[in-house]
């Protein structure tokens, strides 16, 4: 039988030699091992000061994008909610009134848009389903909390700031390949 790892050892219940019975060599080799660990690189990441490096396409907290003129892109079609395997997304649609053209890009918009972060599994299917490029997942982590209510993120927290300088960069997620994939009519979600 092949050993599973390089470090596996065959054990036996043979009698210990006189040297092994002395126990001292064992102690010294054990202490050498611990001393090696004493000087080795530490596994700890000092969290608040130093954050673990995430992948560029790490999937965490969502963001609702605005377009170049600062209008909400979401048209409350409900495809994200439909695609969501955890049923974490809830929305209430509303009609755009005259004079609100600078706020909403489409004639229909989401008056309420909520994601339950406790249900969400951060699979990214909402992002994949969205035909308006309105919802994306970001690298930012959902904060912990003591009560469940704080995990239901409404538009106040999901929507990105209107200020062009404070927009959330999602260019790593929306690569040309992704855009091409979204236009592909052979894919189920684009039919």
């Amino acid at each position: 039988m092949n050993p599973l790892t390089k470090r596996s050892k065959i054990v036996s219940d043979k009698k210990m030699t006189q040297l092994e019975r002395l126990y001292l060599p064992g102690i010294i080799s054990g202490m050498a091992i611990t001393l090696k660990h004493f000087f080795s690189r530490k596994a700890t990441i000092r969290y608040p000061e130093k954050k673990r490096e995430f992948s560029e396409i790490y999937r965490a907290r969502h963001v609702l994008k605005r377009d170049d003129e600062g209008r909400e892109r979401c048209t409350a079609c409900g495809l994200c909610a439909l695609s969501c395997p955890a049923e974490a997304i809830t929305m209430v649609a509303d009609e755009r009134k005259p004079g609100e053209e600078h706020l909403y890009r489409e004639e229909k918009y989401a008056r309420i848009y909520e994601i339950d972060m406790l249900r969400c599994i951060f699979c990214g299917l909402c992002e994949e389903a969205c035909p308006k490029e309105a919802i994306f997942l970001t690298k930012e982590i959902v904060r912990s909390g003591y009560v469940r209510d704080v995990f239901i993120y409404g538009k106040d927290r999901l929507l990105e700031p209107a200020d062009p300088d404070k927009r959330i960069d999602i260019s790593k997620r929306q690569t040309p390949e992704v855009i091409e994939f979204k236009r592909d009519k052979n894919q189920r979600h684009n039919k």
Partner: peptide, 13 residues
Amino acid sequence: KIAGFFQDRFGPD
């Protein structure tokens, strides 16, 4: 501290 260092941690800091 030393316990931490022996276990690849930093210990209280």
